[in-house]
């Protein structure tokens, strides 16, 4: 018996409705929100969450997790910034280093979890501390601003025409995210890597029995996550005037929360990059939008926590009802 494929069954569709609803509410009730600069600002701060979200979707599909993405992102941004500032490394190389560090930590996570068999939360909790420690060894560093030499990297996310007050800024990063979303959704659904990620999350033994090298793919899942954390570091550096050591813990919540809102299953086997995109958008709307309608910024943390629980509970209750048939 095939399930009715109505749109209402797709959590992503409901999430999209919620996202649009939120935007409408903000638009109607907040004069500030209607300003172009506000929307720009919100988008600016969404890119690093979005990139972390794309990356961590893969471990979550395998019923694992990567808790080191928040501190990792800040760590790589600090290291990169320090190299630019103190060692005069060109920004392009620093960006590459961010990505390489992300991949390296991702590989470490992958080996701890996929090969050595540590539970994902304890392994990534530890690498979270380690990256935080590494990051703390650096001083607070700003990456070059738009006007300074090397500041071209800002234009990856935001194009600026003209200068001074009258400058027009265009959020090209948003479209970049859309493109990445399409690419990664393709990877998830149409490549061996994506296919086996889902298979491992759904039934690891059956996948192994079918002759697939699950250890290899399990490790790759975390490497991909690390890669995106590296990218997120660049996006983070682009919007943070001065990256502070010791920060970052808690940033992973926004990304992970967004992935769950987007419909990933708490027990693994299902996930969608499109869902992650919409979910992270909702989290960002809540994050930056709440002050516009009068709620303190700290409420955002509480709400993110509650949103995560609700999203997971919905998934659990759905499963419970299906099993009771």
């Amino acid at each position: 018996m095939t399930k009715k494929k109505s749109l209402l069954n797709d959590q992503r569709f409901i999430a999209l409705i919620i996202a649009i609803l939120l935007m409408v509410i903000y638009f109607v009730f907040s004069k500030e929100f209607r300003k172009y600069s506000s929307i720009l600002s919100m988008l600016d701060f969404s890119y690093y969450d979005m990139l972390m979200g794309f990356g961590v979707t893969f471990p979550l599909i395998t019923a694992g997790v990567d808790l080191s993405i928040g501190t990792g992102m800040v760590c790589y941004a600090l290291v990169g910034g320090t190299l630019v500032r103190n060692n005069n490394i060109p920004v392009a190389v620093a960006m590459l280093i961010c990505i390489l560090m992300g991949v390296a930590i991702g590989l470490l996570n992958g080996i701890l979890i996929g090969v050595m068999g540590l539970a994902p939360f304890i392994a990534t909790l530890s690498t979270c501390m380690i990256t935080r420690g590494i990051g703390s060894m650096c001083n607070a560093t700003p990456w070059p601003t738009l006007q300074q030499p090397g500041g071209w990297f800002h234009s990856i996310f935001k194009l600026t025409f003209g200068s001074g007050r009258g400058a027009f800024k265009f959020p090209i990063g948003f479209f970049l995210m859309l493109v990445l979303m399409c690419v990664m959704e393709f990877v998830l659904n149409h490549t061996k890597f994506g296919r086996y990620t889902i298979a491992i999350g759904s039934n690891r033994e059956a996948t192994a029995l079918s002759g697939i090298n699950v250890k290899f793919y399990h490790v790759m899942v975390y490497v991909v996550c690390g890669f995106f954390t590296g990218l997120a570091a660049i996006a983070y550096a682009a919007v943070t005037p001065t990256v502070q050591p010791g920060t970052g813990a808690g940033l992973e919540m926004d990304a992970i929360g967004g992935v769950f809102v987007g419909g990933v299953s708490a027990t693994g086997g299902y996930g969608s990059i499109i869902g992650t995109f919409i979910g992270v958008m909702i989290i960002c709307l809540l994050k930056t939008g709440l002050p516009y309608i009068g709620l303190q910024a700290n409420w955002q943390q509480i709400i993110t926590g509650v949103v995560l629980i609700v999203a997971v509970l919905i998934d659990i209750i759905k499963k419970r009802r299906a099993a009771a048939v």
Binding site: F121, G250, Q296, I309
Partner: peptide, 27 residues
């Protein structure tokens, strides 16, 4: 309650509680 009765994975509740605790304290 969430872990034992609702069967929410413990690490997810930890994450959520962590955030709620931070936010509630700040508010």
């Amino acid at each position: 309650y969430m872990v034992a009765y609702q069967k929410v994975p413990a690490f997810i509740i930890s994450m959520a509680s962590m955030n709620i605790a931070k936010g509630a304290a700040a508010v």
